[in-house]
Design a protein around this nucleic acid. Structure first.
Lengths: 114, 114
DNA sequence: TAACGTACTATGTCTGTCGTAGTAATTATA
DNA sequence: TATAATTACTACGACAGACATAGTACGTTA
């Protein structure tokens, strides 16, 4: 299980990384995260939508309504240049953080032993 | 800068990893974290002591007073078998989490570029 | 004697995650 | 044909870990 305290603060980055591939909407992003991680990480709906709100408030993404003629209209999200910049910074930060934590946590082999 | 949202939930693990090397106390652990990470991560005092309280409450560490004849008496901490077990689990979790986040975050070279 | 380093405790704030619940439309199933 | 499942969200509130701020207490050094 991935604890939410660890992934905390990286949900925004995960979402941005998917929006870099192209515009998307809530359900699709949720599905993508699930499949990309082989069901290892399933983002909660509330976590996802509160992340959208935060990202938009910060100017990292923009939203617009889809053109669905039937069914409920989707809200699509598009990453902004500011969002791309933020994503890059978070990538750098992640590499730093990973190295820091790796100094204290043992690497495990495929059997989960060390 | 290491964001606190990332390290969140791993402060406990970092502390336990140091206590596995031997009993210690607040200030020493704080210094060790600073030097091991080459000043890249400096744990806040309040974060450290609230982590001690949490770890002790959960039975992962035990405390006892030092034998200092002069100066303020230190509170030493000792890891328990339960704490060692918890540390192992967090190591496994970290390796999982690292792989999940790595799927969305680009690896950077030494220049911070990708 | 005053500053600095060591070694903490107390209190309260903030933020991201998440539990719970509800709304609303479409599509599949019994 | 009813109902369950899937898609696509919104609202509200609780919780926990990190941290800001402040204070206590003792020893050593300038």
């Amino acid at each position: 299980m991935i604890s939410s305290d660890v992934i905390r603060g990286y949900n925004d980055t995960i979402i941005l990384s998917l929006l870099i591939q192209g515009d998307s909407y809530g359900y699709e992003i949720s599905r993508n995260i699930r499949t990309i991680t082989n069901e290892q990480y399933i983002i909660k709906e509330t976590t996802l939508y509160s992340a959208f709100a935060r990202l938009e408030k910060n100017g990292y993404i923009e939203s617009y309504y889809g053109e669905e003629t039937q069914g409920k209209r989707r809200t699509y999200y598009r990453i902004t240049p500011k969002g791309i910049e933020y994503y890059r910074e978070k990538c750098k930060e992640w590499n730093l953080t990973k190295n820091v934590i790796n100094k204290f946590v043992k690497e495990l082999d495929d059997n989960g032993s060390y």
